[in-house]
Amino acid sequence: MIAAWAVTGLWVLGYNSQAAYAAETQTPVRMLFGLPRWTVIGWLLPLLVANAFTIWFCLRFMRDEPMEVLPEDE
């Protein structure tokens, strides 16, 4: 989980530290699918990949464990 967070962070912040902070000087604005290009590559794409990873992690990686039966209120 922490590794997934770190990889996502490197992607989003690493890419956007260049792309998003340089976009101001680009005229006309560079677009992809009608959005500023950096938001697609540096935000939407990692969002989709993170969701795919989350689905894989939860369905394939997370182990089932029996939950303890709770004693009635103390």
Partner: peptide, 25 residues
């Protein structure tokens, strides 16, 4: 603001996955 909220990309996995199972137990 997309960059401001970007941490939410991974919030469910980290915020729930990190402690939920152990916390519940």
């Amino acid at each position: 603001m997309a960059l401001w909220i970007a941490g939410y990309i991974i919030v469910p996995l980290v915020a729930i996955g990190l402690i939920a199972k152990r916390l519940n137990q």
